[in-house]
């Protein structure tokens, strides 16, 4: 049972990471900074609960906001220029964040125990859940509540004008701007929202695993984050959800017996999907099928 709860937790972090990339991908921008925001959320909220003995909820909140602010600051220079520049800038940003935490030592004694980030050794002792008697299913519940809220918000986004604007930019930036949309600021806001979600994910991650270090926050994880929406397809938020379950649940967890071949498979999977299903697996026809099915059901109920 523990094992399955563990997988559920992992899936939860990855879904949120995928969502954070999804928002920006709607505008046609690929960001490899999500892992940097994730790291900021993890360290910031961890420092708050461990070194400042905050309650978990305000700590998660501040962690997410800190990541969002950072996203705003990165997005500002990077999004004003060509989309390709964003890829380069965000990959550099993620590495900067990783290296900063690699060098960050900030430890002092709390209740007779020295705790805090310890440079290359990482940040252990993020034991809020254990110290406060949370059961593992409660942690899973917390994570998946967040996932559910994020899913609903992103689904709702497609019902309102804000979502249509994001997609319009993704579809044709010039036409969108000439239709009166301030493309740059929309992208920056999208980046900041993505930062908040990634930061939240990072905070949850740090507290569930009790331990983070710079090795977690690699460009590979950043690639996972963008691959979920791209493999799943941008037609709807459920594509990302499905892709996380497919990639993390089946490819990475399910095929454990393959050992490190799985990461090789991950690279190959991306190449295959981009060649044969460039719009992602949950594409137009898939969605059409489902919505037709739902419409049928609706008619039957009426």
């Amino acid at each position: 049972m523990e094992y399955y709860f563990g997988i559920l937790q992992t899936l939860g972090f990855h879904v949120l990471l995928g969502y954070s990339a999804y928002i920006l991908l709607l505008t046609g921008q690929l960001s490899l900074a999500q892992v940097g925001f994730f790291a900021i959320g993890a360290y910031a909220s961890g420092i708050l609960t461990v070194l400042f003995e905050w309650h978990i909820f305000p700590a998660l909140f501040i962690g997410a906001i800190a990541a969002g602010c950072m996203a705003f600051m990165v997005g500002f220079p990077a999004l004003r220029i060509k989309g390709l520049m964003l890829v380069i800038a965000t990959i550099a940003f993620s590495e900067i964040v990783r290296l900063i935490f690699f060098n960050l030592r900030w430890r002092f004694e709390i209740n007779g125990l020295e705790v805090g980030p310890d440079g290359a050794q990482g940040f252990r002792e993020i034991r809020y859940f254990a110290a406060n008697g949370w059961e593992i299913y409660e942690i899973v519940w917390l994570i998946w509540t967040m996932v559910a809220v994020a899913t609903i918000l992103l689904w709702w986004l497609d019902q309102i004008k804000a979502g249509a604007i994001l997609r319009a930019i993704g579809s044709d930036e010039l036409a969108a701007e000439s239709s009166g949309i301030n493309v740059t600021s929309v992208k920056i806001v999208a980046m900041a929202c993505g930062g908040v979600i990634a930061g939240l994910s990072g905070g949850l991650y740090a507290h569930s695993t009790t331990y983070v270090d710079h090795n977690t926050f690699t460009v590979l994880l950043a690639t996972f984050a963008v691959s979920y929406p791209l493999v799943g397809g941008l037609k709807s938020v459920f594509g990302t959800l499905a892709a996380v379950i497919f990639i993390q649940g089946i490819l990475i967890e399910g095929l454990r017996f393959l050992g490190d071949y799985r990461t090789i498979l991950f690279g190959a999977l991306i190449i295959l999907v981009m060649n044969f299903k460039p719009k992602g697996i949950v594409d137009e026809n898939f969605v059409k099928g489902i919505s037709e099915y739902l419409r049928l059901n609706k008619k039957l109920i009426k």
């Binding site: 319009a168 579809s171 239709s179």
Partner: peptide
């Protein structure tokens, strides 16, 4: 240059004043 993936309705809606 339309927003190909959006519906006809949304295409016009996007540009409303």
């Amino acid at each position: 240059r339309l927003f190909g993936g959006l519906t006809v309705w949304q295409n016009v809606w996007i540009a409303t004043r």
